[in-house]
Design a protein around this nucleic acid. Structure first.
Length: 557
RNA sequence: GCGCCUGUAGCUCAAUGGACAGAGCCGCGGACUUCGGAUCCGAAGGUUGGGGGUUCAACUCCCUCCAGGCGCGCCA
């Protein structure tokens, strides 16, 4: 059932390649020409720039070359009705209507598989994201990272990559000690001790809740433990409680990870030590001021970086190096790290480290997610983790819902600053594209409910192509067959927002079609069948696209 | 000071180096006794922050300047 329909752009490309190889021989070498969907339908359904690129090498005008190519190509591509030359030398391809219709029919055969393309060659890939320290609840900025990483992984899977989603838990180091000390303090306060939260500790009220849970479970038995025992139990209790709440938030947000990777295990398994030893052995390190440094400047960093502090404890950077080496050892051919914007200064050293480890150059891709500003009626809401004032992701979900929150996070390039207006997001209008899209889905579902009421059987749907009845039908059908091309582009660009743009546009062409054409007509079963067919295919593509975004497709709203 | 991100219609944003820079919102004017009006149709709206350069072709690439955001720890 998962027969993957070939991309039409590939079909055209191959035909062009064949002709040009024959006609221009070696001039064809390394010719990076394109065949892509046109923006303006007056220019056909697909267009190629091949004649422009060839003209320099062949020393002929683009139009001349285009003419030559087209004269040979002529009608040899089965999918194409006509080929035109336009502008300075574009070659424009117009699809046969039957082909558009038959591709549309295939959608229903492929069902949930439709849109799958094979550009990843099953390359084993990892997407690591969120990876927030388990020292407090997720806020909206983390939500943006979560939505992006999750949707990206879905798109990559659809494009034929073998993808794992991973969350790296920073459960070792000083921050965790501070967290444990904070809990210890809150715990003691519950027994009447008058003590202050330690310097740099976590002041949020959630630590009091955790202390109360701990008191319920253990009573006062922890007060008398030794210092080592206390550290152990307070640290691990705090981490596990907070991690649980993070996991709950994420799964409610439709984000699920394949692997939760613990930093602590890197130390327990001596992987940090091993990674450091390897770097030392290869001569990429030196000692200065009592610390161990990595020569990251060698690979373009501003300055060299400390691996082991003067006091002998490894830096976060050191365990991160071990972590990335571990990823490599697990057989990933490529890993994608998604970081918040405050970490962007960290990129050069991490890339340098990957080089020092001798891993292949494009092994590590890093994407930076810019911050979110929450607006309420145009006024910004303050957010600062340091002050302990942040808007928890949980609150946003409760207020606008998962679908809306995810869509808003996903609809833009994550590298840009996002202004998220809460009041606007709650509106049920085109202010809010997610409803626009879901409405199209619900409408189609409603048409099928109506179909059953009128006893128009599903069998009537299975009709052969006659012809499209108007441009609105045809435009909708064309948009449906572009979906796999969009998946391909979105995956290669690592940009899920392209799916948002696509699905909004698709919903638009459906609404246009719907408002201008009667679908169910008992006096014209042929027409009814044809249009139901179109609706059925549209519903499937809306569903598949929304799935890539992790957004629900409701039958009623 | 250095580095990264951003700058497109009044607002929010599109446009793998390609054709006349496109949508939505706001504002204005309209729509079928019938399948969901959370919809549709129409007109209006631009020196793509400024200036150079590369190219057959630049919003896109390079240089420079301007504006906004973020980062420049033996913190994470």
């Amino acid at each position: 059932m998962s027969q993957m329909s070939r991309l039409i752009t590939d079909v055209i490309k191959e035909s062009l390649q064949k002709v040009v190889k024959e006609q221009y021989g070696n001039l064809f070498e390394e010719l990076l020409f394109t065949v892509e969907p046109t923006r303006d339908k007056a220019h056909g359904d697909f267009a190629s720039n091949i004649a422009f690129l060839l003209s320099k090498k062949a020393r002929k005008s683009p139009r001349e070359i285009a003419n030559h190519i087209v004269s040979i190509l002529n009608q040899s591509i089965g999918h194409i009705a006509t080929i035109e030359i336009a502008g300075g030398g574009f070659i424009n391809f117009f699809l046969k209507d039957q082909i558009i219709y038959s591709f549309m029919q295939d959608i229903y055969q492929e069902k949930d598989e439709y849109g799958s393309v094979q550009v990843g060659n099953n390359e084993k890939m990892q997407v690591e994201f969120v990876s927030v320290n388990p020292t407090g609840p997720l806020h909206v900025g983390h939500g943006k990272c979560a939505a992006f990483g999750d949707a990206l992984a879905r798109v990559l899977k659809k494009a034929g990559f073998t993808v794992e989603k991973e969350y790296y838990i920073n459960d070792a180091g000083r921050q965790i000690d501070l967290l444990g000390l904070t809990l210890e303090c809150r715990y003691k306060q519950l027994f009447g001790e008058e003590i202050e939260i330690p310097e740099g500790g976590y002041k949020g009220d959630y630590m009091i809740d955790i202390a109360q849970d701990l008191k319920k479970e253990k009573g006062d038995t922890l007060l008398s433990l030794s210092k080592e025992e206390k550290t152990e139990i307070f640290n691990s209790y705090a981490v596990s409680k907070i991690l649980q709440s993070i996991q709950k938030d994420l799964s409610d947000f439709q984000v699920n990870f394949d692997v939760w990777f613990s930093e602590k295990t890197l130390y327990q398994n001596h992987e940090v030590e091993k990674a450091l030893n390897q770097l030392i052995k290869q001569g990429f390190t030196y000692e200065k001021d009592g610390a161990l440094w990595l020569k990251t400047q060698q690979w373009g960093d501003d300055k060299d970086r400390v691996l082991v502090r003067e006091n002998g404890s490894p830096t976060y950077f050191a365990s991160d190096i071990a972590y990335h080496f571990n990823k490599w050892q697990r057989g990933f051919e490529r890993v994608i790290d998604i970081w918040g914007a405050d970490h962007h200064g960290y990129i050069p050293r991490m890339k340098a480290a990957v080089n020092a480890l001798g891993l292949k150059k494009d092994f590590l891709e890093i994407f930076i997610v810019q911050f979110v500003t929450l607006l309420r009626n145009g006024q910004p809401e303050r957010m600062s983790t340091r002050q302990g004032e942040f808007v928890p992701l949980r609150n946003l979900i409760d207020e606008v819902g998962v679908d809306v929150a995810r869509y808003y996070f996903l609809m833009r390039d994550p590298a840009t600053h996002l202004e998220f207006d809460i009041e606007q997001a709650k509106k049920t209008s085109m202010d809010n594209p997610v409803y626009y899209v879901q409405y199209a889905y619900a409408r189609i579902s409603s048409v099928f409910r109506e179909m059953e009421k009128k006893n128009l059987s599903n069998k009537d749907i299975e009709r052969k192509y006659e012809s499209f009845h108007n441009e609105q039908e045809k435009l909708l059908a064309k948009n449906l067959i572009y979906f796999p091309e969009v998946v391909k582009r979105s995956a290669l660009a690592r940009q899920p927002y392209m799916i948002c743009n696509y699905v909004t546009d698709l919903a638009g062409s459906f609404h246009t079609f719907y408002n201008n054409n009667r679908i169910l007509d008992e006096d014209n079963l042929e027409l009814t069948a044809f249009r139901l067919n179109l609706c059925r295919a549209t519903r499937q593509v809306l569903k598949n696209a929304l799935d890539l975004l992790g957004i629900s497709a409701p039958e009623t709203m």
